[in-house]
Design a protein around this nucleic acid. Structure first.
Lengths: 165, 165
DNA sequence: CTAGCTTCGATGACATGTCAACAAATTTTC
DNA sequence: GAAAATTTGTTGACATGTCATCGAAGCTAG
């Protein structure tokens, strides 16, 4: 290993700031979401992704892919959400292995009533604190990093058992 | 609730990008860290914060405060790290309730050998993908958000039982 | 002093996430 | 078209995080 190139002062400031923001923003958003809507962030994300589809239906594995979750994690989580009546599972017509995750009316109700408050919180604690230029910069920079990470070559883009050596 | 002000296209792009980057970056950094150094990110953070103090010693509660962790979480995590020989606990001289978390030689060894690779990964997957202006923008923006969230008035800045209504 | 009140850290119960293994269904290969 | 390989979703064991509670120690006010 060569002499490591440590982060300089500005880089360190950005990296520490990022991690701190990450943690604090998460805590606050989760706190408000849970208090105002009785949902966890994972709950919200599942419902949100489902509600963005025309029918409120997605193959489990497609949903897992979009969320960057493992199928296992999603399956466990859906079981809990199913018990609360937010989603159901249906059999898949064309693929008998598959299951389709379906938003229930209660689930749609939950996301629709949670969304305004959640978006407001995202604005209040993040977006509205940024200049338009910063919003654009954040959009550009995050997408560049995402594209880089998603590049084939390194590793799987989804959380899955590591590729076979 | 007033008519919600949804995110416009640019804001949405920034918000989605942020969340996606967050997830992917985390997965990748954790994967490399675990593979190269046998440490999880929480392990790394504990060791890193400890090693930044002159003696490699910190009060448990001070460490928890810096990490934005609950004392409970830290206590559990330290027990596991202690079993692996990375840290120890010592009694606190001036406060008999307290315990002092101490970096063991093995712990120092672990962080020192993990750090170069980890910093390199942070560079490779984030910092080096940004222009100097973006690094500065990220530093500025994250710190502004952190300061805003840390403001008294809203809620606790650390994960703790919520304030009594 | 000492009776509350607070803080410290540990703990156990529980919620959530990860990982490996599995059966069933599908796809590929010959 | 059948054997082999892959994909799908579930499951159980385990690791990790959260939450409420606790005993011990410190602090504060009379």
């Amino acid at each position: 290993m060569d002499a490591p190139r440590w982060l300089d002062e500005r880089e360190d400031r950005a990296w520490r700031g990022y991690r701190r923001m990450r943690r604090l923003l998460d805590l606050e958003l989760a706190r408000e979401l849970s208090q105002d809507a009785g949902l966890s962030e994972p709950d919200y994300d599942v419902l949100s992704d489902l509600s963005e589809t025309p029918q409120g239906r997605l193959r489990l594995s497609e949903l897992a892919h979009r969320m960057l979750w493992s199928r296992s994690r999603l399956s466990h989580h859906l079981s809990r959400m199913q018990q609360r009546g937010l989603v159901t599972r249906e059999e898949c017509a064309d693929d008998a292995r598959g299951s389709i995750v379906v938003l229930t009316p209660a689930g749609r109700q939950a996301i629709e009533s949670a969304a305004p408050g959640h978006v407001a919180a995202v604005r209040r604690h993040l977006i509205d604190l940024l200049t338009p230029a910063e919003v654009d910069a954040l959009g550009a920079l995050t997408h560049r990093v995402v594209d880089h990470l998603a590049e084939p070559g390194l590793q799987a883009t989804r959380p899955q058992p590591a590729a076979k050596a």
